[in-house]
């Protein structure tokens, strides 16, 4: 009575469309992860190159250290990772791995930056930011907006963000060095820890060297 052939054809076509959607989505998501991976590799290479340069030029003056000394891609890498993290389609294990790598790169960049500051006596223009993805943290989201806005305004500002609860030994060490309480969000500026939400204006007050960044940028 029911012509089942038509149902079978419709089912096959639907399955093919469904399969294609899954395949294309998978392909593009893999490509995105590759993208993140290759940025991470570039950043790692940048850091290695800077460290080597730094070691070689230990005895020379700060003038030899050009504007491209520190990697420029850490910021956009962070944005891409946090976007990918919020998408359900990505493989969690891949994301965890990329995040781990990213945090370590951040710490290495931070150490390099600190050495640079010490050697060339530059005012610190970096912020360490601890957030949480484990508990509901509304202020973390808002601080995230503020830091993105700050980085857009001052491209030379280096923001190092860390997932407080992420299981990386180096993060735990940072946490214990600065005695960061799990009262998130937490910002570390000039060795001082600030908890809770702070607006763009408040942070500009806390980091006076930000204004210098603009002047320096204009001079360049």
């Amino acid at each position: 009575m029911v012509d089942s052939r038509k149902y079978i054809i419709a089912f096959v076509i639907t399955t093919v469309i469904f399969g294609t959607a899954i395949f294309v989505s998978n392909l593009l998501n893999q490509k995105k992860l590759e993208d993140v991976r290759s940025i991470e590799n570039r950043v790692a290479l940048d850091i290695l190159s800077s460290e080597t340069q730094f070691a070689l030029l230990e005895e020379t003056s700060c003038r030899d250290i050009g504007p491209g000394f520190l990697s420029k891609e850490l910021g956009s890498l962070g944005e891409k990772l946090s976007y990918a993290e919020n998408q359900t389609e990505f493989n969690t294990e891949d994301i965890e791995y990329l995040k781990r790598f990213y945090f370590l790169l951040e710490i290495k960049d931070y150490l390099l930056m600190k050495r640079l500051m010490k050697k060339c006596s530059i005012e610190p223009t970096f912020i360490l930011y601890f957030y949480s993805t484990k508990d509901a943290c509304e202020d973390c989201e808002r601080v995230g907006y503020v830091l993105t806005a700050l980085r857009d305004k001052y491209p030379d500002l280096r923001v190092y963000s860390f997932d407080y609860h992420f299981d990386v030994e180096a993060i735990n060490t940072l946490v214990s060095i600065y005695k960061v309480k799990p009262d998130l969000p937490a910002l570390i500026i000039n060795g001082e820890t600030y908890y809770g939400f702070h607006s763009v204006e408040e942070l500009e007050e806390i980091v006076p060297s930000l204004k210098e960044l603009i002047i320096r940028a204009k001079a360049v």
């Binding site: 469309i17 469904f18 294609t20 959607a21 899954i22 294309v24 989505s25 593009l28 998501n29 995105k32 993208d35 891409k80 976007y83 998408q87 359900t88 389609e89």
Partner: peptide
């Protein structure tokens, strides 16, 4: 293009 949603649901 990284920030375009390339999940399965948008394609479906």
């Amino acid at each position: 293009w990284f920030f375009f949603n390339t999940g399965i649901v948008p394609f479906l």
